[in-house]
Amino acid sequence: MTVRLQTEDFDVGAEINALRRTSPNIGAVVSFVGQVRDLNDGDNVAAMTLEHYPGMTEKSLAGIVEQAQGRWPIANVLVIHRVGELRPLDQIVLVLVASAHRKDAFAACEFIMDYLKTEAPFWKKEQTPDGERWVEAKDSDDQARSRWQQ
């Protein structure tokens, strides 16, 4: 398992290539890439700043991956989350899950993203034509996480 926080961009192809080669048992690699949109809640977004809680963020992400590893047979996981200033079309987050079979990798990747969105201590601040504003958490993200607890 690898968890990285960084300001710089990442190369999805290079990361997949590195991860898929870590074990000949891997038969599937599922990836999720999040990127910055130029429109949120009806307003244009020129840029956003991602704040986080150094120390807790790494532990939170590692804990989420460990939970996923406890639920599905996973060969390897990579999570990269960017912090600092980002613009529309910039990549924000990458989750790669490698496993023997695709179903486990798909499920674990969704699980990791649902928990990341609701538990990992990141906060987005958007720059819009009306000024800066903090992004509000969405109920739909809480609902997405709660389906794993049933």
């Binding site: 999040g34 991602l50 986080h52 809680y53 807790m56 532990k59 939170s60 989350h81 924000i92 987050v93 993203m113 990341l116 969105k117 609701t118 538990e119 990992a120 201590p121 990141f122 906060w123 987005k124 903090w134 992004v135 509000e136 958490a137």
Partner: peptide, 24 residues
């Protein structure tokens, strides 16, 4: 570690307060 309102605080703890998270 994320905690709820009833969590116990001890001397030496690092406590953090923040709004609901919005990463990803």
């Amino acid at each position: 570690a994320l905690v709820e309102n009833d969590a116990v605080i001890k001397n030496g703890d690092e406590v953090a307060f923040f709004p609901p998270v919005t990463g990803g």
